[in-house]
Amino acid sequence: MSDAVVHRIAAIPADGVGVEVVAAGRAVLDALAADSGGRFSFDWAEFPWGCGYYDKTGLMMDEDGLEALRDFDAIYFGAVGWPSVPDHVSLWGLRLRICQNFDQWANVRPVRFHPGVTSPLRKADDAPLDWIVVRENSEGEYAGLGGRNLSGRGPGNEVALQTSLFTETGCERIMRFAFDLARTRQVSKVSSVTKSNAQQHGMVLWDEVFERVAADYPDVATESVLVDAMSAKFVLQPEDLSVVVASNLHADILSDLGSALAGSLGLAASANLNPDRRFPSMFEPVHGSAPDIAGEGLANPIGAIGSAALMLDHLGHPAEADRVRRAIDATTGAGVLTPDVSGRARTDEVVASIIDNL
């Protein structure tokens, strides 16, 4: 028992169904820890930040919130957003503030097709589909550079500039991350997403760096695909995908498409990684706060629980992460599904089934 590892985790449920799915993931992780024979446990600290906190204080998180989070082993995040707060305020005030200041530059979004969940793709019925979207998470189109000006000219004359930022360092590190990941998969292939025919500066740099990095990985197959063509490929040739690396905006959109093709955004897990481990990484489901069903016990917890599996991988427990993924598949395969995937189960029923299947 003296060698037990205690993982200090900061939980930020934030808004809407985020509260429900973070509680679900915590229940699964605590069940795993209880079954570990004392090998590891979780020490949770929950922070009340989010839109409700903003309504009370005018802040999405405490001014010293980053300092409070700095020494945790990981951050487990729910969902941010509520009708009372403008989306750009809630996103930049909490989630993006954490991602950018903790240099969580690698966003990993697996696209997983679960047994028992009907996909709108006919190919999913008879072809094994499984790919990962690797998203550059620190710059690109979400760098936050730009501004609004000239409002003094009167209505209809204001100017807004939103500047994308592409650096060789940012492009190269996310591409090497994608290639290293591809080497661990059954199909070693990296597909780069670009739009260099129209974005002749930033995305041409992206293409040039990809070509240079690819030369260091002769064992990994590559392709470079325009983002509009890649959108079509997700639908028409998904069996040809393994690791897809893309800029902040392109990967954000494509990963949501992938999750929809798998059956629901409620299934989608993600990790915001600081691979250098200078700061804690953050794990969250891809779905939003879903105000329309918040508090009704109908939220799909699988995205959050899948994100907990990614956190287990990051914390050095790959076998336990695989247990969680198998338990999810056993649950969906048994037809224990929430309404977003045409089921009748409630959130707590899905959680109980996953824990039973561990």
Rank of each mutant, 00 (worst) to 15 (best):
R185M: 13
S342W: 11
S255H: 11
R95Q: 13
F42K: 13
G58H: 10
S307A: 14
P280K: 12
D64K: 10
E139Q: 04
P128F: 04
L91S: 08
V6K: 14
G144M: 02
V341C: 13
K195G: 09
L257Q: 11
D348W: 11
S289D: 04
P318V: 07
R344E: 14
A31V: 07
D348M: 00
N357D: 07
Y217C: 07
L236F: 14
S192D: 07
I98G: 10
M282A: 11
I174Q: 04
T184N: 03
I354D: 00
A269G: 09
D252T: 06
E67Y: 05
A124G: 03
G306P: 03
V134R: 00
D15Y: 13
S255G: 04
Q200T: 14
C51N: 07
A330R: 13
D103Y: 13
D216E: 15
R277F: 05
S247Q: 13
E223P: 00
I174S: 05
D356Y: 05
A232Q: 15
L181A: 11
L267I: 04
R148Q: 06
R344Q: 11
R26W: 01
T347E: 01
L66D: 01
I9Q: 10
I253E: 00
T167C: 07
Y54E: 09
L315R: 06
D130F: 01
D15P: 12
E67F: 09
L181G: 05
D276W: 05
P48E: 06
P339C: 05
G288D: 06
F166V: 13
E349D: 12
I328P: 02
G170N: 02
Y76G: 04
P115F: 11
W131E: 00
P48F: 13
I12V: 08
E20K: 05
F40I: 02
E320S: 09
N274W: 08
A34P: 00
L241K: 09
N248P: 05
A334K: 12
A232L: 15
E46H: 09
I98E: 03
R277L: 10
E46N: 01
E172S: 15
L121R: 11
Y53R: 02
A124C: 08
V243S: 12
V245W: 13
I328C: 03
A299L: 05
S231E: 06
D62A: 15
R323K: 15
A260F: 03
A221V: 01
D130C: 08
V220S: 06
D322T: 15
D30R: 05
T194Q: 04
V245A: 15
L29M: 14
G316I: 01
F234N: 04
E158P: 03
F40Q: 09
Q237I: 04
L254T: 02
L337R: 14
S231H: 06
V324K: 03
M175N: 06
A299E: 03
I328S: 10
P128T: 00
V19Q: 15
S289Q: 13
E223I: 00
A308V: 02
N248E: 05
G263V: 06
N101H: 15
